[in-house]
Write a protein that binds this DNA or RNA. Structure first.
Lengths: 143, 143
DNA sequence: ATGCGTGCAAAACCTTTGCACGTCA
DNA sequence: TGACGTGCAAAGGTTTTGCACGCAT
């Protein structure tokens, strides 16, 4: 169960499980796509109208600290977040229409490794985002 | 000459070449790494102390419109910009120490294309950033 | 019981905009 | 000369912070 996974990781890190924290995390679990801070707050307020924006911001830090958060920074749009339950890091196919983000397996291939070797570049981390239209949305595109 | 390339492209697009615009672009040309808006303004002010932040912001729009700007959005840092003289788009090896960003050739390989095909994902654009230490900096790391 | 987490409001930051004036083509 | 570009200051938006209180452990 996703809930348990997340809460256990938070407990391990010494964080408390508060009502607000639960709501904030449930929003991500129930949401099938990455969301902006604005949407996140809105959805959280549906379950608990008192939840404050500063609580969202503070919990972003908490979730990042626990490596539980994916952070996607589109070039021309707001940062969006989703839960990271998969591995250490993920790459995504992000649909420009419905917003769904599907994690995919890694991408650093032989060719890339050769380039890095040639340039003697010591790779620490990387970021790959693929934007387009998913199978479903591709069929309905007319605009 | 880089200056000419850039100014010609701006003229083609119908933009005027003003003193401020020159200074702003020269900063990018003379700078061997991508910089933040803050640094950009600071460096521009060295050549022309009157240059205003809003002029930087407005020229970012202009340069983007003319496809002359690379925009890098590190996950945990400010957006940084560099001139795009290369191709339609570039990917970079970005040094976490000296900040240098070296463009590299593309990355979407057979394996990736197969995944996209399997998932029937219609790829429109993508974004790859590789962070690590460049050859030079790698030798001096002690912290 | 104690200290972490939260709500609230204010502060701090960052980006955009309206207006009057200047300047490039 | 006319339209675009700029400086300035104010507005708008987002994120962070201080403080007092509440709640999870």
């Amino acid at each position: 169960m996703d809930y348990e996974k997340v809460f256990n990781k938070l407990k391990e890190k010494g964080y408390k499980i508060t009502k607000q924290r639960k709501v904030i995390i449930e929003v991500l679990i129930n949401c099938n796509k990455p969301i902006s801070i604005e949407e996140w707050l809105l959805l959280a307020k549906r379950n608990n109208p008192n939840i404050n924006q500063s609580t969202i911001y503070r919990n972003i830090d908490v979730l990042e600290d626990a490596s539980l958060l994916n952070k996607i920074r589109p070039k021309d749009d707001k940062i969006i977040y989703s839960l990271n339950l998969e591995h250490d890091h993920s790459h995504f196919l992000i649909c420009k229409k419905c917003g769904k983000a599907e994690p995919i397996e890694c991408c650093i291939n032989e060719e890339m490794i050769k380039i890095l070797k040639d340039k003697q570049f010591n790779l620490i981390e990387h970021n790959l985002e693929l934007y387009g239209y998913c199978n479903k949305c591709n069929k309905h595109i007319d605009n």
